[in-house]
Design a binder for these strands. Sequence first.
DNA 1: TTTGGCGCTGCGGCCACAAGAGTCC
DNA 2: TAGGACTCTTGTGGCCGCAGCGCCA
Length: 393
Amino acid sequence: MLKERNSIGGSGGGGGWVRPCDSCRSAACAVYCRADSAYLCVGCDARVHAANRVALRHERVWVCEACERAPAAFTCKADAAALCASCDADVHAANPLARRHHRVPVHPIPHHQPPPPPINIDINNPDADDIEEDDDDDDDNEAASWLFLNNPPPPKNNIINNNNNNNNINNNNGYVYGGEVVDEYLDLVEYNSAEDQYNNGEYSDHREPHQSYDDDDHVQYCKQQEGSDSVVPVQCLGSGNENQSAQNFQLDLEFDGSKHGYGYPASVNHSVSLSSMEAGIVPETMMSDISNSNTRPTKGTIDLFTGPALPMPAQFCPMDREARVLRYREKRKTRKFEKTIRYASRKAYAETRPRIKGRFAKRSDVEVEVDQMFSTAAVMAGETAGYGVVPSF
DNA sequence: TTTGGCGCTGCGGCCACAAGAGTCC
DNA sequence: TAGGACTCTTGTGGCCGCAGCGCCA
């Protein structure tokens, strides 16, 4: 299993090349082995460090996700990224918001396992050592949950207190996002990153094999959760409300369109105000493509109940996942946060439309007649000029 | 230390209507 | 099956109201 890696476009990184794996020389490196002083791809890392017990104990860290050339030194929770010292300085000196990001020194990847390390959650034993031993570990696991999106988030972020009877609100004021939680510290970038990860199916296998479950397992999981006195996972909101639990879980699955084998995952309409942002204009000719290629459910809704659940492959082959990761990275590089104008003609019309206190106002008859006169004159002029088509904006 | 007032900032809703999308015949 | 008529939905920008926050007395 590969670690989800969100590279951040720090000025300290990039440069157009990625350090290749020191072993195979073909794949991009993913981890840095301090003992070997070697940069390895995931495949070679697994192969090399599974060779013997000594190698098994090699201390490894992730390669910086921004420059992908140096070992990571810090983990930024808000960016959900492991960065080297240089990229960390560059990225987090960019603006005051970035400076507020909570960063912790990156911890080495523990005893060799297919990264990321699984977080064993013993529901019935919250005090188990597998979860957290202290606050530091708690923070680390939280960071890991962001960094290693393949993992389920640790209970801290994913729980609510039964006694508080809070629905869809966790203790950290995070936002529940399809069973995951979007941290309050996350700005638009992170939010969109998470969205893109969903859209790209990056969350497809965010559960470890032993933690992946089907509906029956989920029911069992919820029952276990509900049997717990202290914590209840977000997926199992409302004790005794199996329908709610099932819906939440179904929501989670719907986000993970890859499991269904859909060409596109279930799209979710996220309303983000971009009024202050520069607008990029999408040529209207593209709209037909967009409309045809992405059938959307009703605005603000997720199609949860239409049709039976499709069979889901439990695992993707490594090549498939690698391709998906590459596709995601490409998409991330070209991602734009500007407001996208889908219909330039509508924009032009809206700008010329009469307003009253900012609201669109009805056009008076005089204005309509004037418009008709102008349009007629324009058509006439176009005909005399030999043009039979009135161009759209 | 607490409370109330004030200013600033950001977000969401509202409006009309052309154009796209879908349905029916 | 193609195409016209019809209905429904979407998207567009600027202003206002409101909530949240910080500052000060």
